[in-house]
């Protein structure tokens, strides 16, 4: 008998029981809808903030790098038929990630027509920071998860495939790193790597791979013990071939899904670091920093007036929490669907 036939049968994913369970979960749907909104906002960030780009002086480098003149900004960025619309949405110039400042005053200004969400401390436009910050959030989340997943798969794979003392050693290191508080570890590593978005992302990845490595290894060991692998071995396939042909494809699917659910928590951690002053440079569109701008204004002006500057802290913190919530709702539902027992 061909070992392939012994593999559990695959049905189309949309007809699977797992997906059905997922679809029937109202929380899953809520999470998905919220995420879709975030994706749309992130994608349309240039179009949404076109008026700010057109009017605020310090947005000029961005406008210029897009090859636009000041008068035509709104039209060009809001018309899907124009090439600039797609260019700005898909690959905007780096200078566009700098939040434009409408002046240099350290005081926040309440929402107005030109600045619908108001200006935060330092006269940075809040709407701009939040919409472009959504792009930064997705960027950080996916890239960090991607890198840590790659590291995790390699190390976990080596560990599970080789076994023996290598496995033992790797798992001990993993234990040490898992036991250590993540935030503290990332803080140390990112300070040493230097400030900057890339550095913080690297730090997050360097610390983040451990969980994946352990999961992947465990999954490999489980698959290895299954009948079809035994059969393949009996038919004389080389261990390497078995590993890549049978074991890896079986284990990797679940890992991918589970890892992608970590995007939310990665973004939250990154925001926390940014709040502490580690991460993107001042003025870069980034939620953690938007909250950090608000730090001096959460108590309002006098007793019992925490809402005098409500816009500087409520908008960014709510957006950040909703983003985390969306991912966690989704993640919870996915885990539920994969493992119906819990």
């Amino acid at each position: 008998m061909n070992p392939q036939d012994m593999k559990p049968k695959h049905e189309p994913w949309y007809r699977s029981k797992t997906f059905k369970r997922f679809r029937r979960n109202p929380l899953a749907i809520t999470g998905t809808v919220m995420l879709i909104i975030f994706v749309v906002v992130a994608f349309l960030a240039p179009a949404i903030t076109a008026p700010q780009l057109a009017t605020i002086r310090s947005a000029r480098p961005c406008v210029r790098n897009l090859g636009l003149k000041r008068g035509e900004v709104v039209q060009a960025l809001r018309n899907p038929l124009k090439l600039t619309f797609w260019r700005a949405a898909i690959k905007p110039p780096k200078s566009c990630y700098n939040i434009p400042r409408a002046g240099y005053s350290p005081l926040p200004k309440p929402p107005s027509k030109e600045h619908p969400f108001g200006l935060t401390s330092g006269s940075y436009d809040i709407l701009y920071g939040l919409t472009w910050g959504a792009r930064t959030a997705f960027y950080i989340g996916f890239l960090v998860v991607g890198i840590s997943l790659a590291i995790g798969i390699v190390i976990g794979g080596v560990s599970g495939f080789l076994g023996g003392w290598v496995d033992n050693l790797i798992m001990r290191v993993v234990d040490v790193m898992l036991a250590f508080p993540r935030l503290v570890f990332v803080m140390i590593v990112s300070v040493i790597f230097g400030s900057g978005l890339t550095q913080v992302m690297l730090a997050l990845a360097v610390v983040g791979w451990v969980g994946y490595a352990r999961f992947f290894r465990g999954d490999i060991l489980k698959t290895k013990a299954q009948d079809f692998v035994d059969a393949a071995r009996a038919l004389g396939s080389s261990p390497t071939r078995i590993f890549f042909k049978h074991v890896v494809p079986n284990s990797i699917g679940t890992l991918l899904i589970l890892a992608s659910m970590d995007v939310g928590s990665i973004v939250l951690t990154a925001a926390g670091l940014s709040f502490l002053g580690l991460g993107a440079p001042v003025g870069y569109a980034d939620w953690g920093q938007m909250i950090s701008f608000a730090r001096g204004y959460i108590l309002g002006t006098a007793q019992g007036t925490p809402f005098d500057f409500w816009y500087v802290w409520i908008f960014p913190s709510v957006v950040l929490v909703l983003f985390g919530l969306a991912w966690n709702l989704l993640g919870d539902a996915v885990r539920d669907a994969l493992d119906p027992k819990s």
Binding site: L107, R295, I298, Q303
Partner: peptide, 28 residues
């Protein structure tokens, strides 16, 4: 944290506090 210092001043738990700039003085 400047907000903490100002809050202590307002509540009378401090007699003097450092404030960073005139904008804060004028607004808060």
């Amino acid at each position: 944290e400047e907000a903490t210092r100002l809050e202590a001043l307002r509540r009378g738990d401090a007699d003097r506090v450092d404030v960073s700039n005139w904008a804060t003085i004028n607004a808060k």
